[in-house]
Simulated scan of single mutants.
Amino acid sequence: MTRQDDSIKCMVRDYRQKQGWSQKELAERIGIKRQAIYDIETGRYLPNTGISLRLARLFGCRVEDLFVDDTPEQQQGVDLVNGTCLPSTRLALSRVRDRLVGLPLSGHDAMPFGLRSADGLLSEDGKHARIFSPSQTLDHNIILMGCDPAFEILSHHVNRLVRDAQVYCRFASSRRSLRGLGEGVAHIAGSHFHNQDQKESNVIAASRDLQQRRTKVIGFSLLEEGLMVAKGNPLGIRGVADLVQPMVRFVNRDCGAALRVLLDDHLQKAGIAGPMINGYLTEVDSHREGAFRIACNVADAALGLRAIAEAFDLGFVPLTAVRCDLLFPEDLIDHPTVKVVLDVMHSSALRKEIDALPGYEASATGKVIAEV
C-alpha cells in the first residue's frame, strides 16, 4: 500500500455498508487484515492494484468507482488544424515549439494513416519468420481479434501507459474472433452477439466455442448498429423492409458476423426472405468496406456502425445498440500486457474517450459480465 493521495476520494465504506458487511467480513472476503480495510476507508492508505481489483470484482463495480479522482482536469489553449470543431471532438495533440496543436480525430481523419512497421518478414519457405524486433518486444506484443473499431483506441491507451506494451488489433467477425481465441492465435477476442430472450449471447457463445478454456468476459463498449446509407439518405431508407425496393443496391456482411445475424433476425420478424433483397448475397468483410462502396456509389446501403458512417460522411439508420465484450482466457490473465489492458479498461480516460465516439457509450466498460 501507499499513502493516500488527498485528491482521491475513497468510496469503499459506502459500498461495504450497502452490502451490510463489517470491516472484518470484507477483509476476510478479499484476504487482508481488518486494519487494512480501516486504513483504506479512513484515507490513510491507497491499496495496490491487486487489492483494488479484488475489491472492484467483489462489489461488481470499477476500481475508479471505489477510488474517485477529484483532481481537476488540466486544460490548455490549443490551435486546431483544419479550423473549428464541435465540443468533445477527439484530438491528437502535439507541441510544436511553444504551441499545443490539435489534429481532430473525426470524419476521414479518424482512420489510421500510413503503414505500420513490421516485426519481421516471412521467409521463402512460408514457414519461418525473419525477425527484426528484439525477443523482449515480441514477449510484450499481444493480439486482439474483433471488429469494434474502438479497439485501436484501447491499444493506444495501453501503449501510452506502458511504452513496450503493444496491442495488435486484427479485424475479425465475432465468430472468427472466438475461433482464433480457441485456436490459440489470439490473447483476447472481441464479441458483440445480440442478446435474445434476456440471455447473454456473448457468454453463451464463449461457453459453446471455448469449452476447453476458462474465460473471463468483460464489457468493453455499447455501440449503435444499423444501416449505412448515402449522405442525406436520398432513397428514404428507414429500416430493413425498405431494402427490398428494386432501386436499392445492398451489400451484406459475411456469414458469422454479428451484424449479419442481426439483419436476418429483423428480416425474419418482418417476414422477408433474404434473396428478395438486391445484393443480399453480395458480401463484404468489414464495416469500412461496406462504407467505401456507398461512398463510391456502387452501393446504397450496408450494415455498419454509426461511427463508421460518420467517418465516411454517410447517413445512418439505427437498428439497435449492442454491447461488445472482451474475452480473456484465464491462463493468459497474468501476461504483462494483458494486465495493462485490464487496468486501462478501468481508467476514466478510456471511458471518456469511448463516450466521445459517435454512437458509443462506456457504461459497461470494465464491468465483469461473467466467468465461463
Rank of each mutant, 00 (worst) to 15 (best):
10 C>W: 05
24 K>H: 13
34 R>S: 08
35 Q>A: 10
40 I>H: 02
41 E>C: 01
42 T>A: 12
50 G>W: 04
61 C>P: 00
62 R>G: 05
64 E>A: 04
71 T>C: 09
79 D>L: 14
80 L>G: 11
84 T>P: 04
85 C>Y: 06
87 P>D: 15
92 A>N: 09
94 S>T: 15
100 L>H: 04
102 G>E: 01
104 P>S: 10
113 F>I: 14
115 L>Y: 00
119 D>I: 04
120 G>P: 05
129 A>E: 15
136 Q>C: 04
143 I>H: 12
145 M>K: 13
146 G>W: 13
147 C>L: 05
151 F>N: 14
158 V>R: 13
167 V>M: 10
169 C>K: 07
179 R>T: 14
179 R>F: 15
189 A>R: 11
195 N>F: 13
198 Q>E: 06
201 S>H: 13
202 N>V: 02
211 Q>L: 11
217 V>P: 11
222 L>I: 14
225 E>M: 03
236 G>N: 05
237 I>K: 08
251 V>N: 11
251 V>G: 06
253 R>W: 05
260 R>W: 05
261 V>W: 07
268 Q>F: 03
271 G>E: 13
276 M>C: 11
280 Y>D: 11
280 Y>E: 09
283 E>W: 04
285 D>H: 08
292 F>G: 10
298 V>F: 06
302 A>Q: 04
303 L>R: 08
305 L>T: 03
306 R>F: 01
310 E>A: 06
316 F>Y: 08
343 D>H: 12
350 L>H: 09
352 K>Q: 12
352 K>R: 14
353 E>M: 13
356 A>W: 12
362 A>W: 07
369 I>D: 15
